[in-house]
Design a protein around this nucleic acid. Sequence first.
DNA 1: ATCGTATTGACACCCGGTGCCAATGTCAAC
DNA 2: GTTGACATTGGCACCGGGTGTCAATACGAT
Lengths: 189, 189
Amino acid sequence: MRGEISRVAWDLFAAEGYEATTVDEIARAAGVSRRTFFRYFASKENVLVETSDALAEDLLAAISRRPAHEPPLVAVHRALRPVVEARLADADQARAIIRLLRESRTLRRAMLERHARMEERLAALMATRLGTDPRKDSTPALLAFVTRALLDTAFNVWFDQHPEDVGAMVDDLFRKLRAVTATRRKAAG
Amino acid sequence: MRGEISRVAWDLFAAEGYEATTVDEIARAAGVSRRTFFRYFASKENVLVETSDALAEDLLAAISRRPAHEPPLVAVHRALRPVVEARLADADQARAIIRLLRESRTLRRAMLERHARMEERLAALMATRLGTDPRKDSTPALLAFVTRALLDTAFNVWFDQHPEDVGAMVDDLFRKLRAVTATRRKAAG
DNA sequence: ATCGTATTGACACCCGGTGCCAATGTCAAC
DNA sequence: GTTGACATTGGCACCGGGTGTCAATACGAT
């Protein structure tokens, strides 16, 4: 049932866009009542946003699997690459959601908030990894923010530039980040 | 009139919270109709969010005033510090909005989106500064993201830790960012 | 067949936001 | 001072997302 609603909704979103598709429409197309839709999904956006939550879980898990001796950004790097690759394996779905995201302000807001939530957990994870108190040391927060930036930028770059090698793209982002935050001046690549 | 509505709204928000304050209430308290409220403010959130837009303008302007020979992150650093200091000069207002932001999901979403918008303009600015094409080089995007991270973290740290010297706090954030993205391993401060 | 329990649907409601149009200003020209 | 033009305002109906309530239905166990 849940799966059915989700499938129908994705189709409608793809066909008419996010805003233009009302919950009534989805419910009708799925053969249930509006109220029932809201019993399966807390909100319209949840239909789309759940896949991104799964990604967050994956990333968090991947990072916490990295050995403790790795410098934090290296751990993030090595965890991020396969997660991004896995996500972009289903190129159609990835494309679809990025398209919807760029079209709808509401959806974009929802996603931004999800990312912010992931970031908080990321910060907590980084704090334990660094062994510091996140209320006193802002390093974990910065690290989490940077991680989100890299993740987000990776998807956008992928969507806009269609790189053939996703792993290399991720590596390149980390290289650029390091170049840009390096103390010494360096020309951008 | 606009100012009157805004003042009344801020008071109500402070008194009852963001979600709990309805537009009808604000309108009634300001002695206008609901419809008129929406003529002055496109949405409820706009009452609060405008001050943050002003901050974004300030930051953008400050960055574009930095000499071109400065490495990008240095330019951001020197531009950010006075802007943050100026903003936190009115500690009451800053505190009020951060409090509301933490309380209301909707408001947080709105603010996240504003920040994302600022980030895009930041990326464009960085692209011209670096002389690269933002569609091909992701460096400006990363730089913009990092800038937002620093701005955001600055306010959060300020709110949570009440540092006495705001400028020093900003400097510290940049130091931590550099430490964390440095290639060599380094203990967190 | 019957009872108890989930699942569902219908309905009413809240709130933010918009379109539309009439009423109320306000100012200018005569 | 009256008339007309124009902007500001208010009232109203409406949309869409989201929630609470409660009756009806389906379903599984006994």
